[in-house]
Amino acid sequence: MKKWLLMILVGTALVLGACGGGDDDQTSEGGSSNGDAADAEAIYKSNCTACHGADLSGGVGPSLETIGASLSADEIADIIENGTGNMGPQNVSADDREVLSEWLAAKK
Rank of each mutant, 00 (worst) to 15 (best):
G17K: 04
L6S: 01
V99Q: 14
A40Y: 03
D74R: 05
I76C: 06
K108Q: 14
C51F: 02
G68Y: 04
T27V: 08
G59E: 11
V92Y: 01
L9T: 04
G58N: 07
A42V: 08
W103E: 12
A69V: 01
G17C: 04
G17D: 01
S32L: 15
C51M: 03
N47Y: 06
D39G: 09
G58Y: 11
S93C: 03
D36N: 08
E75N: 15
G11F: 03
D95F: 06
G53K: 06
D96Y: 10
A13D: 02
D78M: 14
L64Y: 12
M7H: 01
W4F: 10
A42R: 15
D23I: 04
E102F: 05
I8C: 00
A37Q: 05
A77G: 11
S72C: 11
R97P: 11
P62K: 01
I76R: 06
G88I: 01
S33F: 13
N47R: 09
A69Q: 05
D39C: 09
L71Y: 10
I80F: 06
A73P: 02
D96H: 12
G17I: 04
G58A: 07
G31W: 15
D36F: 03
S46A: 07
A38K: 10
D25F: 06
G61P: 08
L56V: 06
T49D: 11
A50I: 14
V92P: 01
K3R: 09
N82F: 15
L5A: 02
G20Q: 07
K107F: 15
K3S: 11
E65L: 08
D25W: 03
Q26N: 10
S57H: 03
C48S: 02
A37I: 14
G22P: 04
E81S: 10
N91R: 06
N34K: 11
G59M: 08
M1I: 04
L14K: 02
S93Y: 04
V10M: 01
D96C: 13
D23Q: 03
P89G: 07
A73K: 07
S70N: 13
L6A: 01
L56I: 04
E75C: 14
K107Q: 12
C48F: 01
S46Y: 06
G20W: 07
A94N: 14
K2S: 12
V15Q: 02
G61E: 11
G85S: 15
L5P: 00
I67M: 05
H52L: 10
